[in-house]
């Protein structure tokens, strides 16, 4: 009698499961891209950066496929209640993942144009750790979605503050570099955009977590999320 029971029409269950499986596959690709891009930055591994850049095409294609499948499922099955919320949540999550894929690609592109320099060596490690945290948030947000686990989703949402704080720290540090030496402005700006991209990827993980909460409870989280990014008021 609960919503975890199977549909009378079993092919409906298979359609919904396939949709979620595609989303998880896409999520795996995007998490890997983000982590690989940050590692490539730290190691100045240009071939690795290239795989992230070329790999984004597959992410985009998978997003397109998920959106088409979801639209088809709506047209054929007319899902209602938690089924409808699941399809809507998957569509929105796929869109978020596609954006994260673009950010990873952008990190890789910037890695290609940056040489090894003082600000790069000083910050790439922080950026790698930040990326790993965001990748874990993305993974947990997707898990929360397919398990309809509102508690896990709320925990993911809370973790975004940490990402915002890491971004703040990087921002201030890079700002100091730029003030001290005009020569570091080029690489520092690139690094700042990279940090900003990863911080934005964290916001998308939060968005996916919010979709999971909507799916599990039927309503969006009400209380305003704590924002840890204060740089908009810094400069």
């Amino acid at each position: 009698m609960s919503d975890s029971d199977s549909h009378i029409v079993s092919s409906f269950d298979r359609d919904l499961e396939a949709l979620q499986a595609h989303l998880l596959r896409m999520g795996g690709m995007v998490e890997a891209a983000l982590v690989t891009a940050a590692k490539a930055l730290e190691a100045q591994d240009l071939p690795a950066a290239d795989t992230v850049i070329t790999g984004d095409k597959a992410v985009d294609a998978l997003e397109e496929f998920i959106q088409t499948e979801a639209a088809s499922l709506i047209a054929r099955r007319a899902p209602t209640a938690s089924d409808l919320r699941l399809v809507l949540a998957v569509m929105r999550a796929a869109h978020s993942l596609e954006r994260v894929g673009d950010y990873a690609k952008n990190v890789a592109k910037r890695t290609r144009v940056m040489g090894r320099s003082a600000p790069v060596d000083g910050h790439a490690g922080s950026i790698r750790r930040m990326s790993a945290l965001v990748a874990k948030m993305l993974e947990d947000a997707q898990l929360a979605l397919v398990r309809k686990d509102a508690a896990l989703a709320a925990a993911v949402r809370a973790r975004d503050v940490e990402i915002d704080q890491m971004y703040n720290t990087l921002f201030r540090s890079l700002f100091t570099y730029m003030m001290e030496s005009a020569g570091s402005i080029g690489p520092s700006m690139h690094l700042h955009f990279i940090a900003k991209n990863i911080e934005r990827a964290g916001d998308h993980a939060t968005t996916i977590a919010e979709q999971a909460i909507y799916l599990a409870t039927g309503s969006r989280p009400s209380e305003e999320r704590v924002k840890g990014d204060s740089t908009s008021a810094t400069v």
Partner: peptide
Amino acid sequence: FTNPKDTRTEAYITGR
């Protein structure tokens, strides 16, 4: 149809 309160309603309208 988007967020029924009772699990029996949910099960019926989603075809379970």
